[in-house]
């Protein structure tokens, strides 16, 4: 298939970016990233700089891919990362616009690569259970209801890609933060330091300059792991209660 790519090129964080146009021949069984590999091989053969894009596992779990395809993070398919998007989703003659994730807290490093270290700092602020190695009781000491473990998993499945922030017109990181808070809150082990965690993580999130949530819901639609917006409501509840109810 013949495709026209409009790819964002930006030398570094300080440079002005622009779109570059390329025509490319792709096959329908290629993954989207393999299509970009083909583009890069072509650029290299012309002694030009390839398009920098982040990728690693290419099986939808590491969360490295960070591009917006025709206005949508990770492209048009729900529950799919860019690396699992295949070219059979497009037809010959299509023009595809590829941009980096955009949010002030995700500054561009180069081309389609952005800096998502703000997510790490949110986790460092409290996205853990304070237990040292060796302190743990037997795994079966505290039973966890099957459905509850499953719900916790649904929140824990976040891959930290940042598509939620990228999709949000406000650049808000609520879905990411709330998924982590709820993953731990729903397990008895995580309940213990729950109030502190909520406050600290929200504080860090605000400090990183993420926008305010206005319940648009695009985050959840674009989330490759289909994390529900219910997490956001739950975060709000926990946050309000930790601020106003708990001492």
């Amino acid at each position: 298939m013949q495709l026209t790519l409009k790819v964002w090129r930006q030398k570094n964080g300080n440079a002005q970016g622009r779109f570059e146009h390329h025509n490319i021949e792709a096959e329908e069984h290629m993954s989207f990233l393999e299509m970009l590999d083909v583009l890069n091989e072509k650029l290299i053969s012309e002694k030009k700089e390839p398009v920098a894009f982040e990728h690693d596992c290419r099986e939808g779990i590491c969360g490295a891919c960070s591009m917006v395809i025709n206005g949508r993070p990770h492209g048009p398919q729900t529950g799919t990362t860019t690396c699992q998007l295949h070219m059979r989703a497009y037809k010959s003659g299509d023009t595809i616009t590829i941009e980096p994730f955009r949010a002030n807290s995700f500054p561009v490093i180069k081309d389609l690569v952005v800096d998502r270290s703000s997510f790490d700092r949110i986790i460092q602020a409290g996205g853990y259970i304070s237990v040292n190695t060796g302190q743990a009781p037997d795994g079966n000491t505290i039973p966890v209801e099957k459905d509850q473990a499953s719900d916790a998993f649904d929140s824990a499945t976040c891959i930290g890609c940042g598509a939620c922030v990228a999709a949000c017109p406000n650049g808000s990181a609520m879905l990411f933060t709330s998924a982590k808070v709820n993953h731990l809150e729903q397990l008895p082990q995580g309940k213990v330091e729950h109030n502190r965690r909520v406050k600290d993580m929200v504080k860090q999130m605000d400090k990183e300059g993420f926008g305010k949530c206005s319940n648009v819901g695009a985050c959840s639609v674009e989330c490759p792991k289909e994390i529900s917006v219910e997490n956001i409501a739950a975060l709000n509840r926990h946050y309000l209660s930790s601020v106003f109810v708990k001492k």
Partner: peptide, 11 residues
């Protein structure tokens, strides 16, 4: 250790 850290193993 993993359970104590909040790993949501199948139950």
């Amino acid at each position: 250790q993993a359970v104590a850290q909040g790993v949501p193993f199948a139950r």
